[in-house]
């Protein structure tokens, strides 16, 4: 069936099988290969893109579900078409060495953009929890977390020191927590 999706500001259209995943639409129909597929189970986040400004895992969204919506991939970020990582997040990833093999990077970058958009006042813990849906096998996340803090306008050294001194880390959501109200 026919879909029309605005990708990185440009209208794209194709006749696709309904089962076509958004990730495959972007890679095969539009020819944008930055978005990677790293797992089958919505676990790794390598395929993360923005749909109408929010991060989603494009391996778990059908292309037809985003008909008439706007999708942003890493290729659509500031400076990308000139090969210049000029977006605050991509620039910080480069400066802080937030990538090694690069496979998780496009998804990690898009997840980070959405995270900062939703919570500009991030600390280290919020960044770590906010990236819980993106796996990286190379960096140990240390420099990814720094890069996102930098992109959010924070001092990464100060943020990491504050977190290190804050004591127990085991209170992240998804960990045993006591969300509370009386």
């Amino acid at each position: 069936m026919k879909v029309e999706i605005t990708v990185n500001g440009e209208r794209t259209s194709a006749d696709v099988e309904p089962r076509t995943l958004l990730a495959h639409y972007l890679r095969d129909n539009v020819g944008l290969k930055a978005t990677n597929i790293g797992c089958d189970t919505t676990s790794c986040g390598a395929c993360t893109v923005l749909v109408d400004g929010e991060s989603v895992k494009s391996c778990t969204v059908l292309a037809v579900q985003t008909d008439q919506q706007a999708v942003t991939t890493m290729e659509g970020l500031e400076g990308a078409s000139e090969g210049n990582p000029a977006h605050a997040v991509t620039a910080a990833f480069r400066q802080e060495h937030g990538l090694q093999c690069g496979f998780c990077t496009p998804g990690m970058v898009m997840a980070a953009i959405s995270l900062i958009e939703e919570d500009p006042d991030l600390d280290e813990k919020a960044v770590r929890e906010g990236l819980e849906g993106n796996l990286c096998r190379c960096t140990g996340y240390h420099n990814i977390v720094r890069a996102v803090l930098v992109a959010a306008g924070k001092d990464p050294d100060a943020a990491q020191q504050a977190e290190a001194k804050s004591g127990s880390r085991s209170m992240a959501p998804g960990f045993s927590t006591g969300e509370a109200g009386a």
């Binding site: 020819g31 290969k33 990677n36 890493m74 290729e75 990308a80 210049n84 990538l99 093999c101 690069g102």
Partner: peptide
């Protein structure tokens, strides 16, 4: 020294085997 490979990795993305055209 920041990496020379990163500008491509952070814009159009790296080219892995499955990305080859």
């Amino acid at each position: 020294v920041v990496r020379t490979e990163d500008p491509v990795f952070l814009t159009r993305g790296a080219t892995y085997t499955d990305d080859l055209t």
